[in-house]
Amino acid sequence: MEVWIGRDGERHGPYKEADIRQWLRSGQVSIDDLGWYEGLADWQPLSVLFPDEKPASAPPMAPPLPQRAATTAPEATADYAGFWQRFGAWVIDLIVLIVPSTIAFYAFGGLDAYKHFLEQVQGGADMATAMREYILGAQSSSVATVIIGFIYYALFEGSKWQATPGKLALRLRVTDIHGQRLTLGRAAARNAVRLTNIITGLIPFVCYLAVTWTQRKQGLHDLVAGTLVLNGRASEQAAAPPSRGRDDGAFNA
């Protein structure tokens, strides 16, 4: 487990749990410093996160403040995108995807399956049978459409823009839990969860409704993949690497 340390409104790390335990025992960090790790709802004092770790002796004064600049705690500055913003971005992306999806529908036999379905209905065939045959006939085009959507979202959200065209239009970006750009693997995982909506036919409700009540306005796919949707395009953000702790056994934030 990796833990961020919060001090005076700034975050430092992340650090390995074993290192933090050692620093608590040696007094290099204070039990009053705050800690946070992925999955924790809010910052907690280190004395709460590691109640079994106590300094061997009380330090003569509080541990010194970090000597170099650190990044601001994400919860203090993050501007989370709301439900209707994200829904609007989804609608725009749906419109953009109409073109490649229509091409796939034609190319993989979807139109022929639909024409055959209409002919059966007009000829008085059993509706259940006609619908079953249509679903089977349009299966290839449906799979192609799903794949196109998956690639679209994963590549755009894992790109330098960190957003699909719909999110760019509404000045949104997708980040990991620390506000950094997604790896392609995390972007793919995020959108793999969204595919469950396609299977159930409940887009966008299953994934997006959670945005209305979660603390950081995360959808189901955000919670599973550890991602956030924030206001502001990636190009508008200051280009600064995340603050990282050293692995040499010292607290140097």
Rank of each mutant, 00 (worst) to 15 (best):
Y80N: 11
D176L: 02
D222N: 05
G232F: 10
L209T: 14
P51R: 03
W4T: 08
C207F: 09
E10S: 12
P59M: 02
V206Y: 12
R7S: 10
Q22W: 04
E10F: 15
T183H: 09
Y134E: 00
P59S: 04
I151T: 04
Q218C: 05
T214E: 00
F251K: 03
L40D: 08
T183E: 07
I103L: 14
F156T: 06
P64A: 07
A238D: 12
I98F: 15
D248N: 13
I5E: 06
K115R: 15
F83I: 11
F83Q: 08
W84H: 09
F50H: 03
F108M: 12
N191G: 00
Q120L: 14
W4M: 13
R194C: 03
N197V: 11
A73G: 06
T200H: 05
W84R: 06
A18P: 09
A144W: 00
N197Y: 06
A130S: 13
V96T: 05
L209I: 15
L97M: 13
R25L: 04
Y153H: 03
T214N: 00
R171C: 08
I148R: 03
D8G: 10
T214V: 02
Y208Q: 07
W4N: 11
K16Q: 14
Y208D: 07
A188H: 02
D32A: 09
D112Y: 05
Y153K: 03
V29S: 04
H12D: 12
